[in-house]
Nucleic acid binder design. Structure first.
Length: 490
RNA sequence: GGUCCCAUCGUCUAGUGGCCUAGGACGCUGGCCUCUCACGCCGGAAACACGGGUUCGAACCCCGUUGGGACCA
């Protein structure tokens, strides 16, 4: 079902501000965004805040933040349903006048008891239509119900699922305006989609059952029907709808965990959509390739491993200078910065050197810390294992050799190491590891020459000398005694 | 319970009746590279839920079964 290529398509993203922007919502927003861009149409942002109990200002802010972090811009809005209440009432009364809706003053108690009766008889607990033909006093408390057409097959062509068919017999005469004049969800949505001239309703498939309720309202309001496309759900690992109990679901939580928005977007778009075998997409490619034809109809399970892989990919391929501001956000404030940390170029070098080994910005920050902060903490395991008295001697030799170098380059450092290696009959690896621990405090880092160059001569030598001292000291009483016991078992 | 949706490797997916001895990716795994860890490169295990049709031919079309899920209550 190809869409018009020109064109004037108008789509919308319509979240309820009852929490953060979660992954499912983000994907719905993304698909709407991409479709709008692809067809050069319009994306409308609408905040469905009629549930005043649960809607909050913070949620609105959180959703807007999430969209902006993902760089999903919209063209019109945000429109707020709570600012359109008069309009819903107007159209509700319009339907009333045309006899397409009616007043109902059934009490909560009555409805409750009818429901229980129906349930007992094994019938669907629908409204029994008591007020359909009654004339209820407009001045007494009442709701307005939509007169759902009876015995009618409601059929529509879902752009993703194909033809979907429902029997209106299972539908209630649903309330469109409550006693307090607030519109119900299905009514407000239809009024908005009409007023905002939405041509394609693209939403999660949890709304699939709402569609046959909404279609008769479009018709009653004599509005053209938009096309519908219902996106499959995103599941957690247990194949139920992704929710808080599956861990982080808020897109902002992913930012905090050190993910790049491009990675999350790329991950999300491949959940349900594909373009042949391609896995990595630039924003431009996404806009030019995206269409509904290749959106699948089966739900997908969220897989954090693959997101991580994508994130590593984007990290590796981002220029250091773009990473620096993000790196700063992840880094705890520096207590005593290294002298070279004053130099922006140093930060870029650090980011470029370390981005290839990091899966997240958090990891990148951890790797980067020893090259930015004056003091570096030595991993206790690494100290115990690598900074042995024997290696202390090795470090002393290396320190001497490094000091004698008139200038530090990759080349001169390599030469110095091989000379020490020859003299001590040690391989490069056996030299590099103690130096690595001495300078970075960890057993994992970039190549040893890169490390030395990045830390610089002053810092490197000071840290190596400190490591020499540490290697002569006992590790610590507690660790010593524990080691002793372990040794007995060997 | 009612209505509706879904069904290819563990996961994301390609596949739109012959190109399929089912392709790619994540993960897993063997190896290479190597100063550590990654990256990268080469290789491996791993799937058409089941049963009926339709057809010369079905992963692809139809029906049923099973299994999962959503919504409403």
């Amino acid at each position: 079902m190809p869409l018009p290529k020109d064109s004037s398509i108008r789509v919308r993203f319509a979240p309820s501000p009852t929490g953060h922007l979660h992954l499912g919502g983000a994907r719905t927003a993304l698909f709407n965004f991409l479709l709008a861009r692809h067809y050069k149409g319009t994306l409308v942002l609408r905040i469905e805040d009629t549930d005043r109990e649960r809607s909050t200002q913070e949620s609105i802010a959180a959703i807007l933040d999430g969209l902006s972090w993902l760089d999903l811009g919209w063209d019109e809005g945000p429109f707020y349903q709570t600012k359109r209440l008069d309009r819903y009432r107007e159209l509700g009364h319009h339907l009333l006048e045309k006899g397409l809706a009616y007043r109902c003053d059934c009490t909560q108690e009555r409805l409750e008891s009818r429901r229980e009766e129906a349930l007992k008889k094994g019938l669907p607990p629908r409204y029994d239509g008591r007020c359909r033909e009654r004339s209820v006093d407009p001045s007494s408390p009442h709701v307005i119900r939509f007169r759902t057409p009876e015995n009618l097959a409601i059929v529509f062509d879902d752009l993703i699922r194909g033809t979907l068919s429902f029997d209106s017999g299972v539908l209630d005469d649903l309330i469109i305006l409550r006693t307090d004049g607030m519109p119900t969800y299905n009514f407000a949505v239809v009024v908005d989609d009409i007023d905002m001239k939405i041509t394609h309703v693209i939403r999660g498939d949890d709304h699939i059952n709402n569609t046959p309720r909404q279609i008769p309202i479009f018709q009653a309001l004599e509005a053209p029907l938009p096309d519908f496309a219902h996106l499959p759900m995103i599941y957690g690992p247990d194949r139920t709808r992704l929710s808080k109990r599956h861990g982080a679901t808020s897109v902002m939580a992913y930012r905090d965990m050190g993910f790049l928005p491009q990675a999350l977007v790329n991950y999300l778009v491949r959940l349900g959509w594909s373009h042949k075998d391609q896995e990595i997409f630039s924003r431009e490619e996404l806009v030019s390739y995206f269409d509904l034809d290749h959106v699948g109809s089966s739900p997908s399970v969220f897989n954090p491993e693959k997101l991580l892989w994508l994130n590593a990919h984007y990290l590796k391929n981002s220029p250091g200078e773009e990473l620096v501001p993000l790196l700063r956000e992840q880094l705890p404030p520096l207590t005593v910065p290294l002298p070279q940390s004053q130099d922006p170029a140093h930060w870029i070098r650090v980011a470029d050197e370390l981005k290839g080994r990091s899966k997240t910005l958090v990891e990148l920050a951890q790797f980067a810390h020893p090259f930015l902060e004056h003091s570096r903490t030595i991993d206790p395991e690494a100290r115990k294992k690598i900074l042995t008295p024997e290696n202390g001697g090795v470090l002393e030799q290396i320190s001497l050799a490094l000091r004698s170098l008139s200038q530090w380059t990759g080349e001169s450092l390599r030469n110095a190491f091989s000379q020490v290696g020859e003299a001590l009959h040690l391989k490069l690896g056996e030299l590099a590891q103690p130096v690595r621990v001495a300078v970075t405090g960890r057993t994992v880092s970039p190549g040893i020459f890169e490390v030395l160059l990045l830390a610089g001569r002053e810092v490197s030598l000071a840290r190596i000398d400190e490591a020499v001292r540490l290697s002569q000291e006992p590790v610590s009483d507690i660790q010593e005694s524990r080691n002793g016991k372990e040794d007995l078992h060997d």
